[in-house]
Design a protein around this nucleic acid. Structure first.
Lengths: 336, 336
DNA sequence: AGGGAAAATGTAAACGTTTACACGCCGACG
DNA sequence: CGTCGGCGTGTAAACGTTTACATTTTCCCT
């Protein structure tokens, strides 16, 4: 592999000069610069990233740590982050902390010296420990974490408000027995959405029986399974709020297989408004979450932290959610 | 930031010993090892990736260069690659070469010294130049590139065969005026799919008029636009083959807005079989491409190249495609 | 107890850059 | 004509590791 020394020797200058040509282009004579560039091109030289990082302690790389890579939600986050990162000339080191893979802690550890900052999505309520394993003063933005995790910037979404809007909407359509398919145990988003649902059930005097709260884990399969259990309830609920769209998709197919027609026999609502939602039949009423924006804001926030010379107050941003009414809930609203 | 020296000093050993504890665990006394580990934990030490890479010339990172990050196709590729990479303890550096971003060439250049190998998806027919900009002997796997690009391992998919299967299937249902919405200009996959379509049109004596070949660029919007043009043709084609599912989705909504009912008034087929396809109404007949497998095989192939001590023959693998019949084409087959 | 081999540990060079500092050259000014 | 300042360039140290080689320690054998 060809290094800066080779270029320097061939061009008849010192390594410092070659370096200067590649960097701030401090005072270098045009003639010299041209010769160096020509030689570099001829030899096919490009600077060694690791060596550069070592001395500058800048990697021009952002770490993105996600709980999974499956589904449209995460892919949208990646896209949002990549877009914002690329605008600043930064690379993106993506890692998923799936079960079976390295633990969150290991993943963080192995990124030391490879990234300038980190965007971490770790929605587990009890993940405080992992967070503490981060070197202090290292720029981190947490996504969808409990706000209690002070010490880091964080961005969340208005889960509670979204769930309230959805449940109120269903109640407004005349439903009084509204079931919920809950998200993963110990997940902050899931807990907040459940809290919103319960608040409306209480405030509006809807049927509060615990049987209406079905467990799920955000996966399509769990939505399918929950819908089957739900279908067996007597009396059967007339509306279902799935805590994310993935489970709504699973529930939809289960309900249909069970012979129910939506929205006539039962109404369905989801959460996240993934791209797929509008293409379902009937199109899925959902709570829109600006997923791409989430990624972009996180990145912007991280860059702000990177540029800050001294540690700033940790800030929290909450992105608004909006109810998107489509046909699956039986309201008129929304096209296709 | 705390370094190996700090750990060594505090533990009363030399840096070499600390290094040994972290690496091959060559002969180190249990007592010493324990003390070093305890001290490392106490100080919160973790090795600096860049420094390590510099001397070992191993980054434990794979570069993944995609033309875009939008849509389910690419996100599936990422997932497949990540899964295989993580199994070997490798990180993933993702980059998209979107218009507006750095050129493919720049992206490649900026990865020097940051990755051990590269997976590049650059389906442009004339991208030979960029490929040549890669240092020779650097492990690279090309995805969906023309097979003519010798010198690198490559993995493609059976575009031609898939297109033939789809077109034959539509013809088998009685259609004789079958339109195609073509993929992006200068794209290898697009060209192959068109070639398959034309072969069947010729062999089966279908209507060969050029008006039936509508241009598109793989985007949903272009599918929508093409469908509108198609709808205006007289006589109107009775079947449409969209060169990817994204365009099929766009075409579907356009056709429906135009008042046509599928598959009764017009049959529709796609390509790629993205997850969304089965959820459309009517469910989309498509050519299944094992996208995740594509990523996994690419990664496996790359690791093989990494481990090879001496340069091997460049190999090409072609993944089979299979026709998935659903309701959008009017055949009985397939559930939902 | 002394010798020696093997095991454990230390020393220092190397990886490919960036950058503070030193140096030489040139023109302008006194 | 000598000095000074600025520009262009070179020299060498530093970044945090790994690892070949040197050195010390351990421990077994006689």
């Amino acid at each position: 592999m060809i290094t800066i020394k080779d270029v320097a020797r061939q061009a008849g200058v010192s390594v410092a000069t070659v370096s200067r040509v590649y960097n701030d282009s401090a005072n270098v004579r045009p003639h010299t610069r041209a010769r160096v560039q020509a030689m570099a091109r001829e030899l096919g030289y490009s600077p060694h990233g690791a060596a550069r990082s070592l001395i500058t302690s800048r990697t021009h790389t952002l770490g993105l740590l996600l709980p999974d890579l499956y589904g449209e939600f995460f892919s949208e986050v990646i896209r949002g982050v990549d877009q914002a990162a690329q605008r600043e000339g930064f690379h993106l080191l993506v890692s998923s902390a799936r079960a079976g893979g390295p633990s969150l802690e290991d993943a963080l550890r192995s990124m030391r010296g490879r990234v300038d900052g980190l965007i971490v999505m770790s929605p587990d309520l009890d993940a405080g420990a992992s967070r503490r394993s981060l070197p202090h003063g290292f720029p981190v933005v947490m996504l969808n974490c409990p706000p209690s995790d002070a010490g880091y910037d964080s961005i969340g979404i208005a889960n509670y408000e979204g769930a309230v809007a959805m449940t109120r909407h269903l109640a407004g359509l005349g439903h009084t027995r509204i079931a919920i398919i809950k998200g993963a145990e110990g997940n902050f988003d899931a807990a907040e959405r459940l809290r919103g649902y319960r608040a409306v059930v209480r405030d509006l005097g809807l049927d509060p029986s615990p049987a209406l709260e079905l467990s799920g884990d955000f996966s399509e399969a769990s939505g399918h399974a929950a819908a089957l259990r739900l279908h067996a309830l007597v009396p059967r609920p007339t509306a279902v709020f799935a805590a994310n769209d993935g489970m709504a998709v699973g529930a939809l197919s289960a309900l249909r297989e069970a012979g129910l027609r939506l929205p006539h026999d039962i109404a369905l609502g989801g959460f996240d408004d993934i791209p797929l939602a509008r293409y379902l039949e009937p199109a899925l009423t959902s709570v829109h979450v600006p997923i791409g924006v989430l990624g972009e804001h996180a990145t912007a926030c991280l860059f702000a932290g990177l540029r800050a010379t001294e540690p700033t107050e940790s800030r929290r941003e909450v992105l608004a959610t909006t109810l998107v009414v489509r046909r699956s809930c039986g309201a008129q609203g929304g096209p296709g």
